[in-house]
């Protein structure tokens, strides 16, 4: 593996992939409302992040507080519950946040309205600034395929599936049929 200079300069980065992490305080009394909102995001399909094609993975997690280990001399409390939002994305985080805060505005309004001092409505440049203020710097970000974008992952998976189907059918095909199907189906 070559030295990844980009990730040395910016620890949020691994190859072309970028790790975004946000920690936003939830308004007291809104925790269950927010949880209900989040749990219904995928009720009718894959959820809003599917509309941002540069998203590999994403999650919303409600953190009630830090766990106090019995070996810990003193507890350490967050003081209120927090919304953790993270995603693994392709490329530039700035333009991704623009897309998140505009194209997903119907959902971001419903989610971040439960967070302390989030803009009202929670969308657009104001939400982007709020998120950037609450961004947590990554220490180490690991990607198993750091140079491959979401569209490329989907393309090579489709190609692999097509090739496997063709390999299964190949014994029953003439050379000409095999060639035609390869050209038509394996992209």
């Amino acid at each position: 593996m070559l030295l990844d200079l980009a990730s040395i300069r910016d620890p949020n980065r691994a190859g072309q992939a970028y790790a975004l992490t946000f920690l936003c305080p939830i308004m007291p009394g809104h925790e269950d409302l927010l949880r209900d909102e989040l749990e219904h995001l995928g009720a009718d399909g894959p959820g809003p992040l599917a509309r941002l094609p540069r998203t590999h993975f994403g999650r919303w997690v409600i953190c009630p507080d830090f766990v106090t280990d019995p070996a810990q001399p003193h507890p350490d409390s967050l003081g209120c519950e927090y919304l953790i939002f993270t995603c693994c994305i392709d490329g530039d985080p700035d333009s991704y946040l623009d897309a998140l805060c505009t194209e997903l505005a119907p959902e971001t309004r419903r989610i971040w309205r439960h967070c302390i001092n989030a803009p009202d409505p929670a969308e657009g440049p104001a939400l982007k600034a709020y998120l950037q203020h609450n961004q947590i710097r990554t220490g180490l970000f690991y990607s198993a395929y750091p140079t491959t974008t979401v569209p490329d992952v989907r393309r090579v998976l489709g190609q692999r599936s097509a090739l496997r189907r063709l390999a299964v059918d190949a014994p029953d095909l003439s050379p000409a049929e095999l060639q035609q199907r390869f050209l038509a189906e394996v992209r």
Binding site: G47, A50, T55, F57, I62, A144, V153, R154, R160
Partner: peptide
């Protein structure tokens, strides 16, 4: 902590399948 919403762009693919497809 349990995620309230978790999304994968290619939820049916394993890491191994993806790496093999990239190599191919």
């Amino acid at each position: 902590m349990e995620a309230s919403h978790f999304y994968s762009a290619y939820p049916e693919a394993t890491t191994t399948e993806i790496k093999q497809a990239i190599e191919l």
